[in-house]
């Protein structure tokens, strides 16, 4: 079992529910990303998803896509993400690289995974690589010491959802809605039931829910059934606001910390 999964399982067994924020690497620059990761490290997060920008992110809504485009236009390279985040020492929050499979394929999948592991990542998540398309990737990730987090969608048939839950390592990422990333006013009514079935199917593997979550009451709603809540677009939107207000990297990191701390109030047992 990967280190990420061992850690998350023990925290879930202890009754914990967790937040997992998403940040875009290199937005507005990689120093700001490092500052954000440092600023939120003591908040007891399940993990942080670090989105590696891609030119054609099909699963992402306008907020995250714009952040990807801005980072790439500023000259961000994948190697610079690994090099800079690899220097972060002493942080306790596991980092997951969310990255288009296209990029790993061009790098060479094995080389990419080894580089990610050397840069301190605990896992990878390929949003455009569904179960069965590249069956070797799970093993290659495991060989590199990385979890390979896989997505279950509300459109996944029950049998397939069970197979994905079994194949995913670290945790299972359940998409709350069919569609792209982005904040939603309401979460679907069938979410609790779907998460319950997935937890039963995954044999104790933690289930985190993402897409559409941006408020503490939604965090509460999700973590009433799931082990974790992932917050992406809502957080990136706040980074965008900070950038537009002309804030420094440390100020941006402070804003992110404040927002994540606010969301944490939605976790059971937190006020």
């Amino acid at each position: 079992m990967t280190k990420l999964e061992t850690t998350l399982r023990s925290r879930v067994s202890a009754g914990e529910r967790m937040l997992a924020p998403f940040v875009t690497a290199g937005y507005p620059n990689i120093a700001a990303t490092a500052a954000i990761l440092r600023a939120i490290d003591d908040l007891g997060l399940g993990c942080v998803e670090v989105g590696i920008p891609f030119s054609d992110p099909v699963a992402d809504g306008p907020t995250i896509q714009a952040s990807f485009t801005a980072a790439l236009n500023a000259g961000l390279t994948v190697e610079s993400v690994f090099a800079e985040l690899g220097k972060l020492a002493g942080l306790v929050t596991p980092r997951i690289a969310m990255v288009s499979f296209t990029i790993a394929f061009r790098w060479g999948v094995q080389r990419f995974l080894q580089r990610a592991a050397a840069a301190g990542f605990a896992g990878v998540l390929f949003p455009d690589l569904p179960l069965g398309v590249e069956p070797e990737v799970g093993r290659l990730a495991n060989d590199a010491g990385l979890a390979n987090v896989m997505l279950v969608a509300p459109t996944s048939p029950p049998g397939r959802a069970r197979e994905i839950a079994a194949a995913s390592t670290g945790f299972v990422y359940y998409l709350s809605v069919a569609g792209i990333t982005g904040e939603r006013r309401e979460l679907p009514a069938d979410l609790p039931e779907n998460v319950r079935q997935l937890k039963a199917a995954g044999g104790g593997k933690p289930v985190f829910v993402g897409f559409g979550i941006g408020r503490a009451d939604q965090v509460a709603q999700v973590t009433a059934v799931a082990d974790g809540a992932i917050v992406g677009s809502a957080l990136v939107r706040r980074i965008t606001q900070s950038i537009e207000a002309g804030q420094s990297a440390d100020q941006i990191a402070g804003q992110v910390r404040e927002y994540v701390a606010e969301l944490s109030k939605g976790l059971p047992g937190k006020k």
Partner: peptide, 11 residues
């Protein structure tokens, strides 16, 4: 192949 988000696989 089908290098797409899981959401599209059923469709």
């Amino acid at each position: 192949g089908r290098y797409v988000p899981e959401t599209l696989m059923a469709a």
